[in-house]
Amino acid sequence: MTLTELRYIVTLAQEQHFGRAASKCFVSQPTLSVGVKKLEDELGVALFERTRNAVRITPMGELIIRQGQKVLEEAAAIKQLAKTGQDQLSTPLRIGAIYTIGPYLFPHLIPELSKVAPKMPLYIEENFTAVLRRKLRLGELDAIIIALPFNEPDVVTQSLYDEPFCVLLPGGHPWEKKAQINPADLAKEELLLLGEGHCFRDQILEACPVLARKKDAGDGSGIEATSLETIRHMVASGMGISVLPQSAVVDHHYAPNILSTRPFRSPSPGRTVALAWRASFPRPKAIDALSDALRQCSVN
């Protein structure tokens, strides 16, 4: 049994397709197939059920692949230890953030982090929570910035700061006369939301049960967007209203009076932003520096 063979079966389990798995492992499909079969023969059990059109994991395969993933994580940790040596702040740190946090946090985080770790550049990725979760587990990312709740075995989660939501309005909207907005009133308006897969969308629906019931009944708006910036442009054009996290409110693209914001009535809906990393990650000083910089961003 080799680490290469374990990487083959873990990747095949993820892709459920020999061709894609081989491509991701940078080998030919026959090479991957032979490696998987060799490991199955050595273990004496079938890890995958193969048909002409599909690859399925067997019950025993799920157990073995889960353990194999842990072995790969530990092997990656050993390599990381050897690479970093004594200075944990001298090599790149791979950070992921959800789409509704990254664009608004990183411009503040990078200069703040460079003050305490100038030799530690950042590899940055923005993605959905589910994708960031998987990449963190596989060791493809060192730490991720997400919104709570977030639960994952063998992963440490540290709350950073609480962030309220606010309502984004086009200029001249009647709600500009209001000092605060009742979350239940969102259901009365044309509300622009992010598409499925964005946790921020789910948080808005959770904050407004009436709106969630309306959408479940098929009576909600069909207007969805791929990013908060796209939503901002549509609101500016008069397509409807939306909800933004406080960090995304500042805008330098539009002249005054094109857009406006209003806070929610107390208790205001919001989210808790958190940092998550593997408990086995071998660079605790890098995590400490990142955490301190993130907290400083929230203060500023």
Rank of each mutant, 00 (worst) to 15 (best):
S291I: 07
A207Y: 07
V273I: 15
L6H: 10
L136R: 02
I101L: 13
V55P: 03
S33V: 10
A207F: 04
I144E: 10
E49H: 13
A248D: 07
V249F: 00
R66W: 05
Y123E: 11
V34C: 02
F128S: 09
I146W: 00
L141Y: 07
F128T: 12
M234Q: 12
H198S: 14
A293E: 04
A147Y: 12
G197E: 00
L193W: 05
V243H: 08
L81I: 14
W175S: 02
K37A: 15
K215L: 12
L132T: 05
V45G: 11
W175G: 02
N182T: 11
P269D: 04
I258V: 15
V299L: 12
I287T: 06
M60P: 11
Q158D: 10
S247K: 03
F18L: 13
K285E: 15
A97H: 09
A187R: 09
N257T: 08
P111S: 04
D162E: 14
V131Y: 05
A255E: 14
E15Q: 10
E229A: 12
S247P: 00
G19L: 12
V273T: 14
A279L: 01
S90M: 03
E206V: 09
Q16V: 03
C166A: 03
K285T: 12
L47S: 13
L3A: 09
A75V: 06
Q29D: 12
H198P: 04
E40K: 11
A97D: 01
L193A: 10
R66Y: 07
P164K: 01
K83P: 04
E176V: 01
D216G: 08
L275I: 08
T4Q: 12
K285M: 13
E190W: 03
G44M: 13
A212V: 00
S90I: 00
Q203T: 08
I144V: 15
Q246T: 07
R213F: 09
P59A: 03
P30C: 04
C297T: 10
E189V: 04
Q80L: 15
G218E: 04
E196V: 13
S221R: 01
T31Q: 13
M239S: 09
L109V: 06
E140L: 11
E126A: 14
L39M: 14
D288Q: 14
N127P: 06
T261P: 05
K70R: 14
A130M: 03
A236I: 00
A293R: 01
V116K: 07
L211P: 10
G68H: 05
R295I: 10
N127G: 13
E140K: 10
S227Q: 02
L275M: 12
E42Y: 13
L122K: 03
G68I: 06
M60Q: 15
N257P: 00
V34E: 07
A286E: 05
R271S: 11
V210E: 14
L6T: 10
H173Y: 00
S291C: 14
S242L: 02
I145C: 05
Y99S: 10
A82I: 12
I181K: 01
F165K: 01
S227G: 08
D87N: 13
R232A: 01
G139H: 06
D87F: 02
E152T: 02
E62H: 06
M1F: 11
C166P: 00
L294Q: 03
V235D: 03
Y254G: 01
